[in-house]
Computed example of a mutant assay.
Amino acid sequence: MIKIVVAGFNGRMGSTATKMVLANETFELVGVLDPLEQKKNLSEFPEYAQVDVPIFTDKETLLSSQPDVWIDFTMPEFALEHTQFALENRICPVVGTTGFSEADISFLTNLSKEKKTGGLIAPNFAIGAVLMMEFSKKAAKFFPDVEIIELHHDNKLDAPSGTAIKTAEMISQVREPKKQGHLDEVETLQGARGADYDGMRIHSVRLPGLIAHQQVQFGGIGEGLTIRHDSYDRSSFMGGVALGCKEVMERNELVYGLENLL
């Protein structure tokens, strides 16, 4: 039985993750974390009426629950601190919060090696999204002209999304840096061409009603290729989260990207 805590359980993704852990026979939910929550136990919420799980408001007290895995769906400004804290206490982090820099990933990876503790930071936990990124990387060998369009709900704080950045990173491994579009093109409205990553462009859409969607559009002479993934419900991410919780227990360092566990 893997003992798990969920940080950010009141959020949309955190709530979905909490319910996934409760429903999984190989997991035991030993605590949830929210520094602003007034309630002391999940049983005080109508949807968790029969669940006896303590609510913690600080991470130090949470250690009393002796968790094996720390699931984190919080805010970008807290995720680095939480992941560092988990690793320092030899708790395996499974992190879906985005906004980490390359320096953050490097620091946390080195810390995990020092502590010999497994962990996972994944911009996207949907299996289909991971395949979309892998297929895009393969296609980029033959179609170096590519633009990424990511679409999310209007409450998402970071742009571009972690998935879009991860996709661009994977494409750049096989694609030489190349400035796309006309050499003399001019933006008559600033930002019209999107963010620039090694010459490829990333566009972010934020609208109510969306969940998480991404389209990777390739152009060639006389043809085009579009690779798209859509998450219509947050439950689409839970298979990847559950896989991550199991896999990190078997590892002794942190990995970045769910594709590294498949």
Rank of each mutant, 00 (worst) to 15 (best):
D34R: 08
H203M: 14
I221K: 11
S136N: 10
E88N: 08
D196V: 11
T163I: 02
L120N: 00
L225A: 01
M200H: 07
I148N: 01
V32R: 02
G191S: 14
R251M: 15
L254G: 04
M1N: 11
G194W: 02
L243D: 12
A122W: 01
P46T: 12
G31A: 09
L80F: 11
L22W: 05
S101T: 14
E147G: 04
R12A: 07
E259D: 12
E169K: 15
N10L: 11
D154C: 05
R234Q: 09
E102L: 11
T16S: 15
L262F: 14
F56E: 02
T74R: 12
T16D: 09
L261E: 10
V6E: 03
T226Q: 10
P208M: 05
K246S: 12
V216F: 03
F143A: 09
Y256H: 10
K40L: 10
F56A: 06
T26Y: 07
D184E: 08
A140L: 12
N41M: 10
G244K: 00
V5S: 06
G224P: 02
I91W: 01
D34L: 02
F237M: 13
L36K: 09
N10Y: 04
A168Y: 03
A17H: 09
E77A: 13
R251V: 10
N252T: 14
V6R: 01
V186T: 15
L258V: 09
A126L: 00
T188D: 04
L63N: 04
G181A: 06
P54R: 09
F125T: 01
S65I: 03
A129K: 14
L225C: 03
V186Y: 11
D184C: 06
G224E: 15
Q217R: 14
M133F: 03
E259P: 10
D154I: 04
V6K: 04
V6Q: 06
Q215L: 12
E37D: 14
D68N: 15
I4D: 00
S43A: 13
P160Q: 03
F218R: 07
E37I: 05
V21G: 07
A23R: 13
D145I: 08
L42P: 01
E253F: 12
E147F: 13
K113P: 12
Y256W: 07
V205M: 09
N89C: 14
T163Q: 15
S43P: 01
G244I: 06
E102A: 15
D58F: 08
M133D: 06
L157N: 01
G194M: 04
D196W: 13
A49P: 07
P67G: 06
V5W: 06
V255P: 00
L189C: 10
V51G: 02
S64M: 13
R193D: 11
P177F: 10
D198P: 03
A103D: 15
W70L: 10
D145A: 07
Q190P: 08
G11C: 03
L120C: 05
N10D: 10
S101D: 08
L29C: 05
G199A: 13
V95M: 07
M133T: 14
V248N: 02
A212C: 10
L207D: 13
I91N: 00
